[in-house]
C-alpha cells in the first residue's frame, strides 16, 4: 500500500537526482528557470485531465472521451470570448456546462443503458470528433490577452497553471477523502455489488464521477485555449490526452480496476513524466526516444506495483 501511494514520489526524487547528475556531467543544468517553467506548464494541462481521470478510474470506470472534450471546450471558450474580456465569465460557464453535460451523458450511458465504460466513452468521443471534423478545419475564435495570463503568468517561479492544477488536485483530494461521496466512490470502485447492497446509490455515484471527470477535461480545455490564444479542434487528440492521462494515473499507483489509489499519486505520476521529459530535453536525446522510455516506465511501474500487491496478499491474484 505504501509503495503504491509513495513509490512514484520516490521514483521522482531518484529520477531528478540521477538526471541532475547526468545533465550536470553533460555540462548543463537541469533547473534553469525557463526550462522548468515550460515543462511545468505542459505538465499542468495533462495533470488537470489526469486528476479527473483518477476519479473515474477509482470508481472502476474510465473516460476515453476526454481528449475530444478538451478540443471542444477550447473552441467553445475561444469562440464565446471572441477576443473580449467581458465574455470570459460567460465562456467559462459555457465550457463548464457543456463538459458537465458530456459527463452526464457518459454516466447515463454507463449506468442506465449498461454500456461498458470503454465503449460508451469511446462512442461519445467519436461523436464529438465527428462534430469537430465537420465544423472546423483549423483554429477558431480568439482569447483576450487578459485570459491568456492564465497560460503565461507566474507567481515567482511557479506558473499560474500549476497552481490551478494543484487547486484542482486539492479539491479532488478533499472530495475523495473527506466527503461521503468520496467514500462511496471508492466503495463503488472496490466492488460495485457490495456497494449497492450496502445502500450506496451506485448509479448516481458513477454519474457524478463522470461529470467531475469531464469538467476537469473542460478546465484543461480552458487552459489550453489560454495557452494557444484560440480554440483548436485537434489539440486534445494530437496531445494524446486520453491514453496519456490514463497512463499518468496508473503510473501514480491507482489500480486500473478501481477502488485503490488517489490523486496524490497521479500528481506524482504527471511530475515524473515531466521530469523525464525535462532531463531528456537537456541531454538533447532524440525526442521520439522519450516516447519509448515513457512506454517502458509505465509498464515497469505497473509491473512493480502488481508484484508488491501480490507479495502483500499471496493467493489473491488480481487479474486484468
Amino acid at each position: 500500500m505504501k509503495l503504491r501511494e509513495h513509490g512514484v514520489w520516490g521514483a521522482l526524487g531518484l529520477t531528478l537526482i540521477v538526471g541532475g547528475i547526468l545533465v550536470y556531467a553533460d555540462g548543463g543544468s537541469l533547473f534553469t528557470q525557463s526550462s522548468t517553467v515550460s515543462l511545468l506548464q505542459r505538465a499542468a494541462g495533462l495533470g488537470i485531465v489526469a486528476i479527473g481521470q483518477t476519479l473515474a478510474i477509482l470508481a472502476g470506470s474510465l473516460d476515453l472521451s476526454v481528449a475530444y472534450v478538451i478540443s471542444l471546450t477550447s473552441l467553445i471558450a475561444a469562440e464565446t470570448m471572441d477576443g473580449s474580456s467581458g465574455m470570459i465569465v460567460p465562456a467559462i460557464i459555457a465550457v463548464l456546462g457543456v463538459s458537465a453535460g458530456i459527463g452526464l451523458l457518459n454516466g447515463l450511458l454507463i449506468t442506465k443503458l449498461k454500456i461498458n465504460a470503454f465503449i460508451a466513452t469511446l462512442g461519445v468521443g467519436l461523436l464529438i470528433k465527428g462534430y469537430l471534423e465537420q465544423g472546423y478545419a483549423g483554429p477558431a475564435g480568439s482569447v483576450p490577452t487578459s485570459f491568456q495570463r492564465l497560460g503565461y503568468d507566474r507567481i515567482g517561479p511557479v506558473p499560474l497553471s500549476v497552481l490551478l492544477m494543484l487547486a484542482v488536485a486539492g479539491v479532488a483530494w478533499i472530495v475523495l477523502n473527506r466527503t461521503r461521496f468520496g467514500h462511496h466512490l471508492i466503495a463503488v470502485g472496490g466492488d460495485l455489488d457490495v456497494a449497492r447492497l450496502s445502500g450506496v446509490r451506485t448509479d448516481w455515484v458513477l454519474i457524478r464521477t463522470h461529470i467531475i471527470c469531464s469538467v476537469c477535461a473542460g478546465i484543461a480545455g480552458l487552459y489550453l485555449a489560454s495557452r494557444l490564444g484560440a480554440g483548436a479542434p485537434r489539440v486534445g487528440s494530437e496531445g494524446g490526452y486520453d491514453l496519456e492521462s490514463i497512463a499518468a494515473v496508473v503510473l501514480g499507483g491507482t489500480v486500473l480496476a478501481g477502488g485503490r489509489g488517489g490523486v496524490t499519486g497521479t500528481v506524482g505520476g504527471v511530475a515524473l513524466l515531466a521530469a523525464i521529459d525535462g532531463i531528456f530535453n537537456q541531454l538533447a536525446v532524440d525526442p521520439f526516444f522519450k516516447q519509448v522510455v515513457r512506454g517502458v516506465v509505465i509498464v515497469a511501474a505497473v509491473a512493480i506495483y502488481a508484484m508488491s500487491l501480490r507479495r502483500k496478499a499471496p493467493g489473491k491474484v488480481a487479474t486484468a
Binding site: I246, A247, V250, L256, A257, I298, V299, V302, A303, A306, M307, R310, V317, A318, T319, A320
Partner: peptide, 8 residues
C-alpha cells in the same frame, strides 16, 4: 508480470 493488458 500481472500488468493489466490495457497498460501493457
Amino acid at each position: 508480470l500481472h500488468v493489466p493488458s490495457f497498460i501493457t
